[in-house]
């Protein structure tokens, strides 16, 4: 061993250190964490999955799209934020208008295999066009004034998988959901309140409404 040149000996020492710590930090440590996690926090460790009528319908931590076969939003459900979690999306300019093109069979967003932000800058003409376009769509869909639409409804989330909307965003959707389900806005508002979470400890983060849990409660109590 000592007869080898120093350079070789150092690289061999490096290799041994790497292999030893690959076993410790790369195999033993994650397996211990996995064991502890599955024992102590199995629901969280397995993805916070939620069931409805005996089947798993998704995760309370991941958004899902509530759209029909043509990709249009379903009025009886609260709608999540715009999402760029779309298979292999790219930005294209078609006849002076910016469009987002995906490569999948359905390109709605909220696809957990392709978490993504838009990365569009504040002064990017495409971003400005998208915000205005979404405002017009929501104004028409929910019959609200553009000035009433909160920013989270017209901007894409960071992960593309944001499970939440702001209480203000939920509020503008109440009337439309109530009408589609033939119930009163007050009944919907009561459920929205149930699924609204304030700031953690009163000051961490922001108040949110979990869209999937709210929509499940709606289906459960006021089926269409």
């Amino acid at each position: 061993m000592n007869r080898l040149p120093t350079v070789i000996r150092q690289h061999l020492a490096g290799l041994r250190l790497l292999l030893i710590f690959t076993v410790i930090c790369g195999i033993i440590y994650p397996l211990v964490m996995w064991g502890l996690a599955q024992w102590l926090f199995p629901r969280q460790a397995n993805g916070s999955l939620v069931s409805y009528q005996g089947r798993t319908v998704g995760s309370s931590l991941l958004c899902q799209e509530f759209v029909n076969a043509k990709g249009q939003p379903l009025p009886q459900y609260f709608q999540p934020r715009p999402s760029f979690a779309i298979v292999g999306w790219s930005l294209k300019e078609v006849k002076g208008k910016w469009v987002v093109e995906g490569m999948g069979p359905n390109n709605y967003g909220c696809n957990p295999l392709y978490s993504s932000a838009s990365n569009l800058g504040n002064n990017n003409p495409a971003q400005i066009q998208f915000v205005k376009q979404r405002q017009r769509q929501i104004a028409k869909f929910d019959h609200v004034a553009i000035s009433k639409i909160p920013s989270d409804a017209v901007t894409a989330s960071g992960s593309g998988l944001d499970p939440d909307i702001t209480p203000a965003n939920a509020a503008i959707q109440v009337d439309r959901v109530a009408k589609a389900r033939h119930i009163t806005p007050a009944q919907v508002e009561a459920l929205v309140r149930t699924y609204t979470t304030g700031r953690t400890l009163g000051f961490l983060g922001a108040p949110v409404v979990n869209v999937l849990l709210l929509n499940i409660a709606l289906d459960e109590q006021y089926p269409v």
């Binding site: 934020r81 504040n122 901007t155």
Partner: peptide
Amino acid sequence: AAQIAHGATEGVETR
């Protein structure tokens, strides 16, 4: 975009 949307929330998670 942030001024039109009334918030610099592009790329920001609600929570």
